[in-house]
Simulated scan of single mutants.
Amino acid sequence: MSGFQFERRPPRIALLEAGRQILAEEGLAGLSLRAVTRRVGVSATAAYRHFADREHLLAAIATSGVWDLTTALESADRMAVAPLAAQGEAYIRFATTNPALYRLIFGPERLGHYPELENALAAAYGVLATRVAKTVSAGEAADKSLACWCLLHGLADLAIDGRLPADSGATDILAARLTMAVAPER
């Protein structure tokens, strides 16, 4: 496999992109600092200038993924009609298009002690919570926001695992319908 065009990207970005590619192709088991540097075409020690260890690399990859999710939710929120339903569709589309990245973000690696990742997750949740707050009474907003987030997360897990009933229909449309059931848009 040919490496990245390292000279055209900042090194940290090239390493993150390589890490995301390896994660998508080989899963978490195939992702190491050595594999990332090999993919980029730099020395084995080059990654240590940017990431203290594999866990730091994983946290950086997860954080970049959450910002991508946040961007998708923000784009969906700008929809003229049914922005909450569009956010539900965007969430599921992100998860099912990037299952390994989604699993890294929300999986058992427990990367929660990285402030950058926590901030990114709070921003993603904030986009959804802000929209829900515009659709329900103030007293219901916190519970309904959490209910929507949990619904989308559970639906994403079931979709990735192929565990949805055969008659449930297209997953992104299902996400829109269920999200609207929790917090109907006015």
Rank of each mutant, 00 (worst) to 15 (best):
Met1Arg: 13
Ser2Trp: 11
Gly3Val: 05
Gly3Ile: 03
Glu7Ala: 14
Glu7Ile: 08
Arg8Leu: 15
Pro10Tyr: 14
Pro10Val: 15
Arg12Leu: 12
Ala14Asn: 12
Ala14Thr: 13
Leu16Ser: 08
Leu16Phe: 11
Ala24Asp: 14
Gly27Ile: 10
Gly27Thr: 09
Leu28Tyr: 09
Ala29Pro: 02
Ala29Val: 14
Gly30Asp: 10
Gly30Ala: 09
Arg34Trp: 08
Val36Arg: 07
Arg39Ile: 06
Arg39Gln: 14
Val40Thr: 12
Val42Tyr: 06
Tyr48Pro: 07
Tyr48Phe: 15
His50Arg: 09
Ala52Pro: 06
Asp53Val: 09
Glu55Trp: 06
His56Ala: 15
Leu57Cys: 09
Leu57Ser: 08
Ile61Pro: 06
Ile61Asn: 04
Gly65Pro: 02
Trp67Ser: 13
Asp68Pro: 01
Asp68Ser: 15
Leu69Tyr: 04
Thr71Met: 05
Leu73Gln: 01
Leu73Ile: 02
Leu73Met: 08
Ser75Thr: 15
Asp77Ile: 00
Met79Ala: 15
Ala82His: 12
Leu84Ala: 02
Ala86Asn: 03
Gln87Glu: 12
Gly88Val: 02
Gly88Glu: 04
Ala90Tyr: 00
Ala90Cys: 04
Ile92Gln: 07
Ile92Arg: 02
Arg93Trp: 05
Phe94Pro: 00
Pro99Lys: 00
Pro99Ile: 08
Tyr102Trp: 15
Ile105Phe: 04
Phe106Ile: 09
Pro108Gln: 13
Leu111Gly: 12
His113Val: 12
Tyr114Phe: 15
Pro115Ser: 14
Leu117Pro: 09
Ala122Asn: 13
Ala123Arg: 15
Ala123Val: 02
Ala123Trp: 00
Ala124Glu: 01
Tyr125Cys: 01
Gly126Ile: 04
Arg131Leu: 01
Val132Leu: 04
Val132Gly: 01
Val132Met: 03
Lys134Asn: 10
Ser137Arg: 08
Ala138Glu: 14
Ala138Gly: 07
Gly139Ile: 00
Gly139Val: 03
Ala142His: 07
Ala142Phe: 03
Asp143Ala: 15
Ser145Leu: 00
Leu146Arg: 14
Cys148Ser: 09
Gly154Pro: 10
Gly154Val: 05
Leu155Arg: 03
Leu155Tyr: 06
Leu155Ile: 06
Ala156Arg: 00
Asp157Ile: 09
Leu158Trp: 06
Ile160Glu: 06
Ile160Tyr: 08
Asp161Cys: 02
Gly162Asn: 06
Arg163Ser: 08
Arg163Pro: 01
Ala166Leu: 09
Ala166Gln: 11
Asp167Trp: 12
Ser168Arg: 05
Thr171Asp: 12
Thr179Gln: 02
Thr179Asn: 03
Ala181Val: 01
Pro184Phe: 07
